[in-house]
């Protein structure tokens, strides 16, 4: 009797294994939710479809002229000790008409950063440049990023004279709205970050010609000379 039982048992076990497989196996089937409880609620979540609106999307484009308000993230605590002073702990996408948000002073492009340029700002600019710009413009700004090699035809070198003399405000506008074949990055890069990127691009331009030893802070000169 036990013999029959174990034969049938082993057979059933094999069937279960064959049908259910092992943990971690790749599958295109949606996960089984064994106790669904209230796991899926009919509420609007970020970037989800919704049957309520005609176009099927839960997200609504902002009404013309609306201005997103900056706000501080909840639970945001200083990570690096100087977070209180950092302007980057807020989400800032302002549509205001002032120089900071448009790069324009009256009818003309303005120049100069709307806040103090500190090493932290340039560092932030370097990080953001690496994320968003280097893909096309290259890590040094020479216009030789990976996308250029893959077929983006008209990548400008940021080191050329035209951009060296271009006003900060016009560069800000180009980052925000794009230019020619470059699409705008205003939806992704926050306002202070765009200015920080400009500060870093200026540093890149100086480092690639035009910089003299007097541009280096005194503390760093000896180090630089020792290196050369």
């Amino acid at each position: 009797m036990l013999k029959y039982f174990f034969t049938v048992f082993a057979f059933l076990g094999l069937i279960v294994l064959a049908m259910a497989g092992f943990r971690g196996a790749k599958s295109t089937r949606p996960p089984i939710e064994i106790f669904p409880d209230m796991d899926r609620q009919p509420k609007v979540k970020a970037q989800t479809p919704s049957g309520f609106f005609a176009n099927g999307s839960a997200a609504r484009p902002p009404v013309d002229g609306s201005v997103p308000l900056g706000y501080t993230m909840p639970q945001q605590k200083p990570v690096d000790g100087e977070a209180d002073a950092s302007p980057y702990k807020k989400i800032i996408f302002s549509g205001a008409p002032d120089y900071t948000d448009t790069g324009k002073m009256g009818e003309n492009w303005g120049t100069g950063l709307p806040f103090d340029v500190t090493p932290a700002v340039v560092g932030r600019g370097q990080e953001r440049y690496g994320i968003y710009c280097a893909v096309c413009h290259g890590a040094t700004g020479a216009g030789n990023g990976i996308a250029k090699q893959l077929g983006v035809a008209t990548v400008q070198s940021l080191l050329q004279e035209r951009i060296r003399v271009m006003s900060d405000g016009e560069i800000f506008n180009t980052i925000t709205h794009g230019k020619n074949t470059m699409l705008g990055y205003g939806d992704r890069i926050q306002v202070p970050d765009r200015w920080a990127i400009i500060a870093y691009v200026r540093a890149l331009q100086k480092s690639q010609g035009g910089a003299t030893l007097s541009d280096v802070p005194e503390a760093g000169r000896a180090k630089l000379e020792a290196g050369q």
Partner: peptide, 15 residues
């Protein structure tokens, strides 16, 4: 072994 997200969720690879 089976009634856990280690089995039900891990490996979900939709097209």
């Amino acid at each position: 072994y089976y009634f856990t997200p280690k089995y039900t969720r891990v490996g979900y690879q939709p097209t």
